[in-house]
């Protein structure tokens, strides 16, 4: 009886992503980590697993180097498209950097969120750091909302990028709040200068533009509150058992905590499990190193679901392989007996 109580292995949370599948309220799931650790594979696998238990799932890649197309061997674009072989899993790829040019183009033609801003004020508004990405993000979210997917998975760009991406609602809200405040304070004076209809030199209207910015701010603050709700949003960290990856992961977890974004899952990818009596020197050495970092991970992240994924002998591409791989997110991989 007493030995069972003292058993230290029991306080580790189960090493699967089952908790995410079970948490039906989740609407936004971010998958992030350092480059090359298997974010895309993990997010695709998670999407496949979620598609089994949810009505509809959308997988969005915000990584400028899009890999979804590679992973599913199918071309995806800016519009959500069903993944071949699934009825409730769609995918799309957006480029946070590229879409600003499109927004500008749209604005000139009189559509899109930036429409109605004169060239000068447009430049001014776009000079706010991160606004381009935030705007495209807001655009995507608007689209996504109207599409009524039950769960949306973001395959994010490598760490630094991701954090910036998640940060802007806050940054932008502050910047826009300042602008709105300025406009209410100096609006009357500006209007006096600009004439009764408040038209700017480029033929834009000051009040209209302020309304647009205010609208954008509201959208973004709504997104912000959604992301900070742990019932709606979670972040899955993907890492490999190596120092730099671990370091980045720790930094990311701390930063996410400071933004108030929930994270309780870590996927440790590319684990080597050499068979008993393996002659492969490199494999054994690497296994030893990975084991060291795995122990550290378990010690440090005892409140996380730490999922251990093995390194396979083939690239995980295509529906079947992804499905097979995704099984291991839910049913822990059992390493071959007798290994190191």
């Amino acid at each position: 009886m007493s030995t069972a109580l003292i058993n230290t292995d029991d306080d580790q949370l189960e090493p699967t992503l089952q908790s995410i599948l079970d948490q039906k309220t989740l609407r936004w799931i971010f998958v992030g980590g350092k480059g090359g650790v298997g974010k895309t594979t993990t997010s695709c696998s998670l999407a496949i697993q979620l598609a089994k238990v949810r009505r509809s799932v959308l997988l969005i890649s915000t990584d400028p180097a899009h890999n979804l197309s590679d992973a599913f061997s199918q071309k995806f674009g800016k519009e959500a498209r069903l993944v071949n072989g699934f009825t409730n899993l769609s995918a799309m790829e957006i480029d946070p950097n590229g879409s600003i040019q499109e927004l500008m183009g749209q604005a000139e033609e009189g559509e899109g969120p930036a429409a109605g801003m004169g060239g000068m004020m447009q430049d001014l508004a776009f000079a706010i750091p991160g606004i381009d990405e935030a705007m495209s993000f807001a655009e995507v979210l608007k689209q996504v909302k109207s599409l009524s997917y039950e769960t949306i998975i973001f395959d994010t760009a490598p760490t630094g990028h991701t954090l910036r991406f998640l940060q802007f609602p806050t940054v932008l809200e502050k910047a826009l709040a300042k602008i709105s405040q300025l406009s209410t304070q100096f609006g009357p004076m500006l209007n006096g200068l600009l004439g009764a209809n408040g038209s700017l030199p480029n033929g834009a209207n000051l009040n209209e533009m302020m309304e647009k910015l205010e609208g954008l701010r509201e959208t973004i603050s709504e997104v912000n509150t959604q992301f900070k709700d742990e019932n709606l949003t979670t972040f899955v960290c993907v890492c490999i058992p190596e120092f730099l990856s671990l370091y980045e992961t720790e930094r990311m977890i701390q930063e996410l905590a400071s933004y108030g974004i929930d994270t309780h899952c870590i996927v440790v990818n590319q684990l080597l499990f050499p068979k008993a009596g393996s002659e492969c020197e490199q494999c054994n050495a690497r296994r030893k190193m990975q084991k060291k970092y795995l122990e550290q991970i378990e010690e440090l992240y005892d409140e996380f679901n730490v999922v251990k994924m093995p390194l396979l002998v083939e690239e995980v591409r295509g529906k079947e392989k992804l499905e097979k791989f995704s099984e291991m997110l839910i049913h822990p991989y059992v390493p071959p007996a007798g290994g190191l």
Partner: peptide, 17 residues
């Protein structure tokens, strides 16, 4: 050493921050 005792180091780092 952050490389040898990552867990301890990270915990200290959190405390430090």
């Amino acid at each position: 050493s952050s490389q040898d005792e990552f867990a301890k180091w990270a915990k200290l780092r959190r405390q430090h921050d």
